[in-house]
């Protein structure tokens, strides 16, 4: 059965967005990412205009992250304190990132910077997570304690000397409030430049720099993504009129279910196994982007907007 999308001005088989939502929701529940870096290109491939794809994606992320945050909250996996500080930094960084994009657009090289940032960030994050997770699994097999490896890092020592030290009980870590705030700003700038929620950037920051346990990282990341996506959905509806409600509902049907299923699967997998899976997904998207950038396109024209 087909359904007409009033804002995208296109007709679509209802099973396609439901299946797409289910897949991306599954990733969301498993890894604590919004899935925007995956969903938006897939929607564009289905014939949805790029601007509508990006805006509608943020609307369905609201649903998926609500579902995921609720599931993780019930499991006691959301560090609201850490999430709030990171979110505050992220909002400030997001505002700064939007200004950066405005300047780059005026200079005429925004697209170049966005694409290079995308490839570099995805490539670095994906590669680091893959290598580190495989090494961690090997270490645990050799009965070495991971904590010992982490305790003496220079960055950790420097972070401990900062003022405003705060205990984040749920995560079992103590940091200066400035640390998550500044990381939040950093991720916020990059997320705004890349036009995504930033979940796939925030997860590694929480795991490797803030040293939070993986199960709390996923729940806390979803909590932040929820607020981020609410803001983006409202702004896209109000200023650009590009949120397709009908499409968002169909994606939601799949993604909310997928987020729950992902949460259940996530509990059955170990933290390092989850990281390897996420790294593989991130690297696959990176390779797709590199091939798009290097292979001659069939058309020398494209729509403006989207990621």
């Amino acid at each position: 059965m087909h359904i007409y999308l009033p804002v995208a001005h296109t007709s679509i088989n209802i099973l396609i967005p439901i299946a797409l939502g289910l897949t991306v929701g599954l990733l969301s529940g498993l890894f604590g990412v919004g899935g925007g870096f995956l969903m938006t290109p897939l929607l564009i491939m289905m014939g949805i205009p790029p601007t509508v794809a990006a805006a509608t994606d943020s609307s369905q992320i609201v649903g998926a992250s609500t579902s995921g945050t609720y599931a993780h909250w019930k499991l006691g996996n959301v560090d609201f304190r850490m999430g709030s500080v990171l979110l505050a930094g992220g909002l400030v960084g997001g505002f700064g990132g939007v200004q950066v994009i405005k300047i780059l657009k005026a200079m005429g090289n925004a697209d170049f910077v966005i694409k290079i940032t995308y490839v570099l960030m995805l490539g670095i994050v994906g590669s680091y997570m893959l290598v580190e997770s495989i090494a961690a699994i090997r270490r645990s097999r050799n009965k070495h304690r991971e904590e010992k490896m982490q305790s003496d890092s220079r960055l950790t020592r420097a972070m401990k000397k900062l003022p405003l030290q705060m205990e984040f009980k749920k995560s079992g870590v103590t940091h200066s409030a400035l640390v998550p705030l500044l990381f939040g700003v950093f991720v916020g700038v990059l997320a705004a430049v890349m036009g995504v929620g930033g979940g796939f950037l925030m997860v590694p920051v929480m795991v490797y720099l803030l040293r939070m346990p993986m199960h709390v990282v996923v729940g806390t990341s979803l909590f932040m993504i929820l607020f981020n996506s609410i803001e983006v959905t409202f702004l896209q509806s109000y200023t650009n009129h590009t949120v397709d409600f009908m499409l968002a509902v169909l994606l939601l049907v799949g993604s909310t279910l997928g987020a729950q299923i992902g949460t259940i699967f996530g509990r059955k997998l170990k933290g390092d196994q989850l990281k390897i899976l996420l790294a593989v997904v991130v690297l696959a998207v990176t390779f797709k982007m590199i091939s798009d950038l290097t292979l001659t396109p069939s058309l020398l024209l494209g729509s403006s907007g989207g990621h």
């Binding site: 609307s59 369905q60 649903g63 609500t66 609410i230 959905t233 509806s237 949120v243 968002a248």
Partner: peptide
């Protein structure tokens, strides 16, 4: 849109 998404 936000209300429906959160409720769903």
């Amino acid at each position: 849109a936000i209300g429906v998404s959160v409720t769903a």
